[in-house]
Design a protein around this nucleic acid. Structure first.
Length: 155
DNA sequence: GCCAACGTTGGC
DNA sequence: GCCAACGTTGGC
């Protein structure tokens, strides 16, 4: 059992969108970074915990808790020549990019990035490191516990 | 919109 | 394999 932080632009897919989806589950598509892809491919397992993070928006932060709901499979958007995630170098025989399914579990209070930066127990989070841009990053058990307590306590 | 930081590409 | 140029991310 591992823990992850996954960034989504809420204009594209928000945590509420996942809650509203059939089975509270959506495909995590559009990852086009090898390090993030390799986390999905090599390390993620069904049932792993996910901090669902909203990026590129007015108040970035953790919007909810989710879990990994499938193993890795080819990201369909890489084959769509009309879409913005099209990759001309990917083929159905040799896909380059993958998705996993993500299921929303729990919506607590919104935890803004600016507040996360004030929490000493989170200072080593990959997300908070200078220049960090990874769309999927590992979270330690201690960081996970700290954030869940914050979200559930509502303080 | 700005810009720092990082990733990718491609010439050599 | 180096590295400059370019593109992208994402907070502010």
């Amino acid at each position: 059992m591992r823990y992850w932080l996954m960034k989504s632009e809420p204009d594209e897919v928000s945590f509420d969108d996942v809650l509203a989806a059939s089975g509270q589950t959506v495909a995590w598509f559009g990852v086009r970074n090898y390090q993030a892809r390799n986390f999905m491919r090599d390390a993620m397992q069904i049932g792993d915990g996910i901090l669902f993070y909203h990026s590129s928006c007015a108040v970035p932060g953790v919007a909810g808790i989710a879990e990994v709901a499938s193993g890795a499979y080819p990201d369909a958007t890489q084959f769509d020549s009309a879409g913005k995630y099209f990759d001309p170098k990917a083929t159905r025989a040799q896909p380059r990019w993958i998705s996993v399914d993500v299921r929303a579990k729990e919506k607590g209070r919104y935890l803004p990035l600016a507040e996360m930066r004030t929490i000493a127990a989170l200072e080593d989070m990959v997300l908070l490191q200078k220049g960090s841009r990874l769309s999927i990053s590992p979270v330690t058990a201690g960081q996970w516990k700290t954030i869940l307590e914050r979200i559930r306590r509502g303080d």
